[in-house]
Design a protein around this nucleic acid. Structure first.
Lengths: 346, 346
DNA sequence: AACATGAATACAAACGATTGCTTATACTTC
DNA sequence: GAAGTATAAGCAATCGTTTGTATTCATGTT
């Protein structure tokens, strides 16, 4: 059986389409439709299993009650959990979430955004890659509801919710230094994304504060391009080249997981041979032995804040720029033990 | 600036809306529109940053090029990865994926499905919970494109793609038995979902084949209800009550992760004190030391097959029922060492 | 010169809902 | 009994596309 429309109901009940529409939107009482008509319309609608055509509705009203979420990679722990929170929060306001991952592939990322823009959601939640800038600017120009998460563009006037990445990196390196580590490496990825830059700055400043010199040779920018070597291999080569490294700060979950694999391949034991701290928590870090110390992001807060701001833009037309920078949480586990102090220092 | 419509372009170029529509759909040549008009229309469309209104389009054509994916919990490793594959595959055919997690919460699950139904996607990919049966039947009755994944309903005439769950469990227990384990526990969850039943059967049959008796006391059905005890505690209690258990088969990723936490809390060492095999692989299992043996699902194949069948339904109206049951892959790591044979047996 | 042909474009209906404006009837009120 | 006012409902335009069916004009044919 085909789907029933308002017209079908109108025909069956003998009233106009207008009346049916009013009744089914729950405005019958208010619009003084008689009780008998209301009852009849509702009965028929039920019987025909009526479900409004959302295209027609959206075409007319301009609303979709759908939000678009674009993240790098849904299978990544941080984004998977963020997605879940976002979905839960959106649901509270009556919105569904449609999401896409941009695969961290610059070509694809643009494409995904284009498609989502075309689908005309009521608002967008985006963890943008650099290549998305033009489209993001276009969204802003069209005054469409938009909140950036996890990253932002300095030259785009958009609201965003991020972590204090500088502080996360700074605190980690500071902690390493206090525990007695001296050759602290940074393993990050190649992108120019703002959050990576900030983490890099935090790393450098904490070294300086602790009177450790910054050595470019202790920083590895891993390339994610598929034509390059596998990431695990890239990290292994880097670590082999600098056997003096006694601590590593990984700037992402992913890198951390791969880094642990590299360390294992090299026969280096975390904690005993080398200290490790990672951005973003996950099950592996929590339950591994030794447990991996991490800079954990307040995922729940990020999601909640982002949705709140977005809904505010949509429903209250509050387009004021909001910038929320949340504090990271340094969770110390077993991968960062204090180093034995050299005997001569005693 | 407001969004441009076909009408705006028509006005600006001096041709009719029809012509503009034809040109922008790439049918200009074929429909004998003059080159000069084509060029002009395209230039203006570009300048006004024209993007078609998808509601109008869908309203008219009935197509959305959007698929709905409903899974238990996106933050779960298996589903997160499945989602990614599904998205990639769908993209190849020009479809975007909208997804929702049902949170394994029966109440919410139905609601999510209702919303997705209303959004009128071109097709649905569902890992159904039991409570979805009525809506799934409704979808089938309306002859809407639909493929069930991971689970299925025996009494619903839908296509599905699943794992051979029976075999997965059977092989694991058989392996345990061959390695010399004698008191093999099963930790599963409370649901009546078909895949859990199959795993249970596989467990029982493999015990029988190895002349081990099936003891209900060695089976723990964990409750996920929030009002009940935390899962980690439930598992700890179970293990404390039966200190004779020398091996555990966890029927899900989630349970495995929580189980490892319980074991750690109890001071039991995997491999040394107890053998462990888990359904579904993840980073933790792969990189933990000792590495956890797992029954890994061919996620890529599941996703690819499901999309292929779904697209076939949508584009070729091929509504024939397809049932694909993929073979699990028992990946042996360090959590299942052979047990020392009792001296008396020598 | 009458007519057919084809190229190039336009008209207008439809998709299904919402909504500002009317209309028709009945009931008050002076 | 005429005017005013609730009450109960319907008309018709509108959102932005797509598309079957015209229409217009120039060219070719006989």
């Amino acid at each position: 059986m085909k789907k029933a429309s308002l017209k079908d109901i109108a025909k069956k009940t003998g009233v106009s389409v207008t009346t049916v529409s009013i009744v089914l939107n729950g405005n019958g009482k208010e619009r003084k439709i008689s009780d008998s008509v209301i009852a009849k319309v509702e009965r028929v609608a039920e019987k025909l299993y009526y479900r409004p055509n959302q295209f027609a509705k959206s075409l007319r009203t301009g609303k979709t009650f759908t939000l678009g979420l674009i993240v790098d990679d849904i299978s990544n722990f941080f984004f998977a959990h963020l997605s879940k929170i976002v979905e839960e929060e959106a649901d509270k306001f009556g919105y569904t979430v449609m999401f896409c991952s941009s695969e961290n592939d610059e070509g694809k990322a643009r494409n995904v955004l284009k498609i989502l823009l075309d689908k005309q959601m009521d608002g967008y939640l985006i963890a943008p890659t650099l290549s998305m800038l033009p489209d993001v600017l276009q969204l802003i120009a069209e005054k469409r509801p938009l909140v950036l998460i996890d990253r932002f563009f300095q030259n785009a006037t958009a609201s965003y919710v991020t972590l204090d990445n500088y502080k996360g990196a700074y605190d980690s390196v500071d902690y390493f230094a206090n525990q007695g580590y001296r050759n602290i490496a940074l393993i990050t990825n190649e992108t120019e994304q703002i959050q990576m830059k900030e983490r890099f700055e935090g790393y450098k400043d904490a070294l300086k504060k602790n009177k450790l010199s910054f050595l470019p040779a202790l920083v590895k920018k891993v390339s994610f391009k598929s034509e390059d070597e596998k990431i695990v291999i890239q990290i292994e080569k880097f670590l082999k080249a600098r056997p003096d490294i006694d601590a590593i700060l990984f700037t992402s979950n992913n890198l951390g997981v791969l880094g642990l694999e590299s360390l294992r391949n090299l026969g280096k034991k975390v904690a005993r041979d080398i200290g490790v701290i990672c951005f973003d928590d996950n099950d592996l870090f929590r339950l591994a032995s030794p447990g991996i110390s991490v800079i954990s992001q307040p995922i729940k807060q990020i999601g909640k804040n982002a949705i709140r701001i977005l809904i505010d833009q949509i429903e209250n037309k509050d387009m004021g720029q909001k910038h929320i920078v949340l504090s990271p949480n340094l969770v110390i586990r077993d991968s960062t033990p204090a180093k034995a102090v050299a005997v001569s220092a005693l």
